[in-house]
């Protein structure tokens, strides 16, 4: 845990968010303070501890694999910012 390694510009690219230079500078200092705060977790001996992913102890919730009615196409498309011919339009992926 070495907080100064946080490079906001690099991580923002991983997260697919454009940030202004001002935001990058602001987040850099604010998040470094948050990371310094969480450094305190290093004080805890966790060598013999299992991680908790969920608060309740359930795994493998199965159901019978059978088709059921879902969202109608019109409803599924109603919020798409761009659509045509009953399909969602996406920005060109292949050059």
């Amino acid at each position: 845990m070495s907080s100064p390694e946080l490079d906001v510009r690099y991580v923002a690219n991983l997260a697919r968010i454009d940030l202004s230079d001002a935001e990058i500078a602001q987040f850099q200092s604010q998040l470094c303070r948050v990371l310094e705060y969480v450094e305190q977790l290093n004080q805890v001996d966790v060598s013999q501890v299992e991680p908790t992913a969920h608060a309740n102890d359930i795994t493998n919730v199965f159901r019978i694999d059978e088709p059921k009615p879902g969202l109608e196409k019109v409803a599924a498309l109603q919020n798409a910012p761009r659509q045509a011919n009953g399909l969602v339009m996406v920005t060109k992926v292949v050059e």
Partner: peptide, 30 residues
């Protein structure tokens, strides 16, 4: 929201996952 996405992306990113996320999940157990 941006600030938290950036922080969350960072603590899950390669090389930091164990130090932050996994450790936090273990302290959560405690």
């Amino acid at each position: 929201v941006k600030r938290r996405i950036i922080l969350g992306t960072y603590v899950l990113s390669s090389g930091y996952y164990d130090a932050y996320y996994l450790r936090a999940q273990k302290v959560r157990t405690l």
